[in-house]
Amino acid sequence: MAVPAIEPAQREHWRARRWTLRENTAGWLFALPWIIGFVCFTAGPVIAALLISFTQWDVVNNPVWIGLDNYRQLLKDPSAHQALKVTTLYTVVSVPLHTALAFIIAIMLNNKLRGVGLYRTIFYLPSILPIAAIAVVWRWVLSPQYGIFNYLLSLGGIDGPQWLASPTWALPALILMSLFNIGGAMVIFLAGLQGVPRDLQEAAMVDGANWWHRQWNVTIPMMTPYILFEVVMGFIGTMQVFVQPYLMTDGGPKDATLFFLLYVYRNAFQFFSMGYASALSWVLFLYVVVLTVGIMRSARFWVYYEGQKG
């Protein structure tokens, strides 16, 4: 019996399907190590933490299911409220300052200055130093008696604050410290500034715009996608600050620097309330998600994408 001949179009179709299948398989295989890592080390623990958050678990004994009790406890736990307040305050002040400073420095370093490479390196350097080393150095910088800050203030006749020893100044001290680590944001802004069309700047100049008007009306609008990125990443990062308060203040004095993650850590690994720590983690996660979505939604009012209509 004669085998019906395959039409050339059908043959082409099968070839294309085989090629797609091969491409897809290769793609999945390349992605597989990441997927395995994500499932085992991120998604798995996240889901496990959700389940643990409904239990009372001291790590040694078996967990006991207690439903929503951990979440109810959280509602009336003053330390959790303080931790959320401290973290939010730190984020709300530090992220805009950090972003603005990085942006200003990037604009300054975008000029063709002599030795600009050296300046860029100097500003970027703190970003590659281990945070633990930075924390130790800053403890000295902020020393009320021997620190360089208070020494400089004393030159102006100002009696410097107690910084990390003061419940009033400890959080501002940590915010101040965060401003010296702008290297990562600065590099992103520098990259973004390369993409701001020169013809727009020149057109504005021809129209009589001065330097400030050009930045305000051309550079900043063109840079808003980068600013959005930095704000979102900065927001997510600062909500998870841990090392600085852990090493520098241990949450003190008087819980003035009790960051949320530090409180999670204490509950998990000092008080062995793993269930409560998991509930705290989930609340932080949801808090970050809600606020991040809020920031992203706000983007339509202030972020300009060149490719978008209107």
Partner: peptide
């Protein structure tokens, strides 16, 4: 059994004493 938590609380309050 709750010593770590109690210790943390005492340490926090003692800050007021030192200040």
């Amino acid at each position: 059994p709750k010593w770590p938590e109690i210790d943390q609380e005492i340490t926090k309050q003692i800050d007021s004493l030192f200040l």
